[in-house]
Design a protein around this nucleic acid. Structure first.
Lengths: 213, 213
DNA sequence: ATCTGTGAAGCACTTCACAGCG
DNA sequence: CGCTGTGAAGTGCTTCACAGAT
């Protein structure tokens, strides 16, 4: 069976709410309550979960601890994942310093850049390697995920190199639609693109001319 | 007419490619060529654009400069936008220091935090204000957009305060589904959630146990 | 001949509504 | 009686395919 990608995208949110409920000591939860917390219809939650199994009990709801574990297993969150980060500029350094990855099992194990000034330097405990050696290094030390934090103009070539190294999941911080062969999953994450689509809805309600400040 | 949100989300990508083409000096572009660059079908591009007008010429294609300008106008990218940033921790500082907003017309004009140690300090040229005063400050100096970079547990209350201050567009860095009244647009941007959905597809192809490193 | 703009068809996701179980 | 799991209906986005313009 082929599960819609939108469903997969919602699962991490479900998993996170369930973890909260677990910490709050709640044993059972209904699709209605989960839906309220998530801003999603109860039917959608039941339908989404039904792709993977029958986790609930009629008349009762879902066992929070059990469902949480099932989702973590389905998503692979119960295992560690290795990441190569490409691009150690301002953004790359922020990503390297970000404390939110490792508690969730994501570990950046390789860092690459093209700037000779920082190649060889150690940043946040990781030696920066030459991106020209990316394929060679990934052969020696494979990773599961690539994070691309290079300028837009270089992102496609970096992604191509990652794909040649059999990296199948890529998080792309460059504001462009990257091309990749089928089987490779790319997610774009760009705050400017996100803002640029929201301004569409703001056009007629702009609060004040900037010059007035 | 009500234009699908997915269409609005694609427009910034179109606008960006058109700007590249403009800089490359290309005068005309067909939906086929645009589609190739963007990994989108030509029909989708034509359909998307047709929601807003008839910008092309049959037999020729689209005038790059003209279409670029139309899209910038449709999205409101030809105007400056004011932003309030809430949460000046590690992430908030990275956002404050990010050079990518202002070239696109996004200007952070207010910074808030709840930590007494940094309230009053100046960071990246902006005085950090007390988040408890958010509504008062936004009354004096309205903004168009709010960026929320506070911990998950505080994000909803911050969003509620922004909404009370008539902020209608919010970029939320917290990894949760925030609630807001209709008319308010929230986009979530969280790298961990993005990774957590990609691992679903990786489950059976994990490269190596992390312990082996 | 080429390429747009667009109704109509096709496809995919969401919601409904209810049988069935606890 | 409450709540899940799920076919079926509903809705909305994407793709097709072609008339029409250059």
């Amino acid at each position: 069976m082929d599960i819609p990608a939108v469903v997969i995208d919602r699962l991490p949110l479900y998993a996170r709410v369930l973890e909260s409920l677990e910490h709050e000591g709640q044993a059972l939860v209904s699709s209605k309550e989960l839906g309220k917390r998530l801003g999603v219809t109860p039917a959608q939650i039941r339908k989404d979960l039904s792709y993977f199994g029958r986790f609930g009990k009629q008349g009762r709801g879902y066992n929070v601890h059990h469902l949480s574990g099932e989702l973590r297993n389905i998503l692979g969150l119960d295992r560690p994942w290795r990441i190569a980060l490409v691009g150690i500029g301002q953004l790359g350094r922020a990503i390297l310093g970000y404390q939110g990855f490792s508690p969730q099992g994501f570990k950046i194990v390789l860092a690459f850049d093209s700037n000779p000034v920082i190649i060889g330097r150690e940043i946040a405990g990781l030696k920066v390697r030459d991106v020209a050696q990316l394929e060679r290094e990934l052969e020696r030390q494979p990773v599961d995920i690539g994070i691309v934090a290079v300028p837009e103009g270089n992102a496609q070539e970096v992604i191509d190199a990652l794909v040649r190294s059999n990296v199948q999941s890529i998080l792309n911080y460059a504001p462009m639609a990257a091309q990749a062969p089928p089987g490779v999953h790319i997610k774009r994450i760009d705050p400017v693109l996100a803002l640029q689509s929201m301004t569409y809805y703001l056009k007629d309600t702009q609060v004040a001319p900037l010059a007035a400040s």
